[in-house]
């Protein structure tokens, strides 16, 4: 009688297992450590805001500071400064927008129960 499982069957099973582990490891990140900086509606840079040191990016006259668990618009060449007044952002889904300079920053929120939009 032949064996129910040969060496090759085990190899196939092993490959399948490795593949699923790999796919699981590569699933999209769901926590709020990342913020996206958009310019003109297009993604300009995605940054990790949990770094111990703070970093600065200046684009279209808007200076964005991130690190230590938060991100904020430090300065902008715009007139109304609504973006600077938005303050320091640290929670998922929070955003600051500088419409005159067409720059926005948003802390990613991919959570299942996250609202799809905020009115206000």
């Amino acid at each position: 009688m032949k064996k129910l499982f040969t060496k090759w069957d085990f190899i196939i099973i092993l490959i399948c297992l490795c593949l699923s582990v790999l796919l699981f490891a590569l699933r999209p990140n769901e926590n709020g450590n990342e913020a996206v900086i958009r310019v003109d509606g297009k993604e300009y840079k995605t940054v990790d805001i949990n770094g111990a040191d703070t970093d600065e990016i200046t684009v279209n006259g808007v200076t964005v500071v991130y690190g230590g668990g938060e991100i904020y618009i430090k300065d902008s060449s715009c007139r109304d400064k609504i973006c600077v007044n938005a303050g320091h952002l640290s929670k998922k889904g929070q955003s600051a927008v500088c419409a005159p300079s067409r720059v926005s920053v948003e802390i990613k929120n991919n959570g299942k129960n996250a609202p799809r939009a905020v009115t206000g």
């Binding site: 955003s95 927008v97 609202p115 799809r116 905020v118 009115t119 206000g120």
Partner: peptide
Amino acid sequence: GGTVGVFGKCGKSDPVTVGVRDPFGGAGEY
């Protein structure tokens, strides 16, 4: 901005959950 329009079948997001801005909190907080 803060005006939201929702229509039709929005996949798994249906019905669509919309946050109401916390007037005492920061930008984007509800």
